[in-house]
Simulated assay, not measured.
Amino acid sequence: MSTDNTGFEVPEQMRDFAEKSVDQARKAFDDFMGATHKAVSNVEDSASAVQANAADVNKKALTYAEEHVNAAFKFAQELVKADNVEDMMKLQQSYLRGQMESLGEQSREFSNAATKAVQDAAKAAQKK
């Protein structure tokens, strides 16, 4: 009866342990990758929401700028037609009052838009 003692045999328990370790490492990696994909998706959704709201704010800003320029031209046209200093002062007062009211309303709208942008981004991040 000849026995070959030169070969090394891995005990069955060691093989089972190694196999379980590899399976656990694979599962941990898969879980990590799943969480990473979810985080990236959340960031993309949040960025999309912020980008959409930023475009709305940009459009509003351009509209407001156009309104202010038009109001300034209208004021200038009225000022040129004024008959005396008293009329000029009334026009000036009316123009400034209108501009202050307009700026107040626009500030509220910008504030609401910024709040909405933050809320939309937070909602997009929570969806995933």
Rank of each mutant, 00 (worst) to 15 (best):
A28I: 07
P11R: 14
E67N: 00
D45C: 13
A125Q: 00
A76S: 06
V85N: 14
E66H: 08
V40S: 04
K20G: 00
V40A: 01
H37D: 08
H68K: 15
R15K: 07
A39T: 01
A55T: 05
A72Q: 02
A124N: 00
F110R: 11
F29C: 13
L62H: 15
A72G: 07
L62C: 05
A49C: 03
H68N: 02
F17A: 04
F110G: 06
S2P: 12
D4V: 04
F17I: 03
K20E: 03
K38D: 11
A54V: 12
A125H: 03
N84F: 06
H37V: 00
S107M: 10
M100W: 14
A47I: 15
E19M: 02
K74I: 14
M1R: 12
D120G: 04
E109P: 10
A117R: 01
E66N: 06
L91V: 02
V43N: 05
Q13D: 14
E9N: 08
V40T: 09
D83W: 07
F73H: 04
E105L: 14
D45P: 08
V10C: 07
T63F: 14
K74T: 09
D31I: 07
Q99T: 02
A125I: 11
G7P: 15
A125R: 03
K90W: 09
K127I: 05
Q119F: 12
N84S: 15
A76L: 06
Q119P: 01
T6N: 09
E86F: 13
A54I: 10
P11L: 06
D31T: 05
K59Y: 06
Q13W: 08
D16A: 09
V50E: 05
L96V: 05
E86S: 15
T6P: 10
H37W: 12
K128M: 14
T3Y: 15
V69K: 00
F8Q: 15
A82P: 03
T36I: 09
V57S: 00
A18V: 00
M100Q: 09
R15V: 14
L103W: 13
Q126D: 11
H68M: 10
E86D: 14
A122M: 05
S102H: 09
D16W: 15
L103Y: 12
A113L: 02
A82V: 01
K59I: 03
T63A: 11
L91S: 00
T6S: 11
K116Y: 04
E44N: 08
E78I: 07
L79P: 03
